[in-house]
Design a protein around this nucleic acid. Sequence first.
DNA 1: ATTAGTTATGCAACCGATTGCGTAAAAAAA
DNA 2: TTTTTTTACGCAATCGGTTGCATAACTAAT
Lengths: 340, 340
Amino acid sequence: MDKKVTIYDLAALLKVSPATVSRGLNNHPSISDSTKKRIHTIAKEQGYRTNKFAANLSKQKSNTIGVIVPRLDSYFMSTVLAGIEQVANKVGYNLIISQSLESEEKEKINARTLLNSGVDALLVSLANETKDYEHLKNYTSRKIPLLFFDRVFNLPNCPTILIDNRAAGYEATTHLISQGCSNLLHISGRLNRSVYKERFEGYKEALQAHNIPFDDTNLLETDLDSTKIKTTIEYIKNSNVKIDGLFISSDNYAANCIKELQKQGYQIPRDIKIIGFNNDPVSEIISPNLSTIEYPGHKMGVLAGESIIAHLNGTINLQSTNSILLRHQLLERESTQKTI
Amino acid sequence: MDKKVTIYDLAALLKVSPATVSRGLNNHPSISDSTKKRIHTIAKEQGYRTNKFAANLSKQKSNTIGVIVPRLDSYFMSTVLAGIEQVANKVGYNLIISQSLESEEKEKINARTLLNSGVDALLVSLANETKDYEHLKNYTSRKIPLLFFDRVFNLPNCPTILIDNRAAGYEATTHLISQGCSNLLHISGRLNRSVYKERFEGYKEALQAHNIPFDDTNLLETDLDSTKIKTTIEYIKNSNVKIDGLFISSDNYAANCIKELQKQGYQIPRDIKIIGFNNDPVSEIISPNLSTIEYPGHKMGVLAGESIIAHLNGTINLQSTNSILLRHQLLERESTQKTI
DNA sequence: ATTAGTTATGCAACCGATTGCGTAAAAAAA
DNA sequence: TTTTTTTACGCAATCGGTTGCATAACTAAT
């Protein structure tokens, strides 16, 4: 009972043409309600399911959205994906998800694969490594909508969704300063990614605004990979001046730093005050609770999904909206508390 | 310069038939090496990319694997997905991922959508709610391979990948007992999911093996949703006997319990020893470090991906392999340490 | 009754690659 | 040289919907 039923079968049963069946199934206005009803009824009865392959081929669209993220196994990304999936699913779009693992090479391959797979749109959060954007221009040149989120890049006609990282960096830094820190270190992700670059710039501006001199030792560029905590800790210990404030671009990394610093005898926040970024669950689990910047991942995903779908539906024109900024928020917790 | 190039275009350029071009592109043996070379050369030159819609239609397969998970924004799931993606991507399979959000209804819709989308195989981790499996029988009846991981169910011809949850539950419980606990409480997920059921049974067996009586108060069935910690804590506080050991089926939930218990004045592990499950990152961030059962998510994903792909390639026959058990491991950390 | 205007449907050409079957040409065997 | 085999390729049907254009049937207007 499970052979494939086609519109031809239905057409034969109803003694109408396949074209009529097709239109009926798609609620085309020029089909009478009565035959529409007959078509739908028999379709259900026969267990008809439209062959997407055929439909895709003739319509040249797939109802599928491609997503490329640096890694799937990051809490932040998984919340973004959950948001995207939720809205995509609701309106019947599928999501093809792939990860670049921070490799430009893999990102290129993924982009190509997704292009070949005929995705209707692409959502991208860039790999750390990526410096060249030709693989994405293939999309824009074919008029396939392309949207960046979080790890963005300014490509013509490609909207971006992110938070105001510069302002967030500024706020985080100012917060540290207002809590009494004067020898700050910013532990950043790769600066070729604008998210990190901008946080860093906010950091620098905040220092400047408070007349705190900045030099290269006040910045540590890392890839925020927890396996390399030791090096970071060494850097802090060997610093010429006694560092008393850390602004770390990732909660997860920050939490690991706290653990390790504590192991080395540091008291947080007494010796060093620390603020992270993202409001990852670990920030509330760690002792002391980690001050951080709330980064609304799920909301970002929802917005990214909604935007791209609205654009595909022609409801809005993304080209005109070039950049959507989400609201972030400073969360003051124990790790930056003043100690007497 | 970016109109679509088809095999017909190439055929015209080379003055051969489209069939030859198709075969040449696919390295069919009956095409001479010389023409193959010519075909590949001109294909590259013209920027030809095969139209997957057409290829899918005629081959009736999509090179796509569907995945349904309860939620995307869980650390464990994201590691599994990362594993699946890694192997799928390597061999050119796409992944369509959707989440059921623990709803049977959504799971059904997702299953149907993926079926319509023509996935070549389906990987499923069941929603808590799911009690009926008709939506999955659609796959088996069409000979579309179906594999369960983690939240499994025993469906004919559907292999499962998981750990030995009963043994893990037994070990976790035994560990608590050996650390001196005698009034245990198991905080479980929904028992209609076999993962939780089996952990619970391992727990019961361990109690029995150590002559510790079990009654219903020694079990708290929850949905392991962190927003409902309070209720759980109340349960512990209001217990008639003083609970001194907790076996919690989720690290994340366990970590939140620890925080809350500490807030209420409990000392961990002095007053209550706690063991979690999963070896989530939070387990090493929380103070005290959480003892737990290592659950190899990434490995599970890799294995699930490899299995299903090998089966699709005809390399192995999954029907014969009915169940793959991954090795778990008890990790003894601070939260179950003996106190003097 | 005739013309104009609707409405409901069918025809047939796509969409682009795949593949079973047939055959000309070239190589090998007789 | 003739026959048999092999090699290399082309023909044409197929996969299952979609859609522009034509048309028959019916209603409304003149």
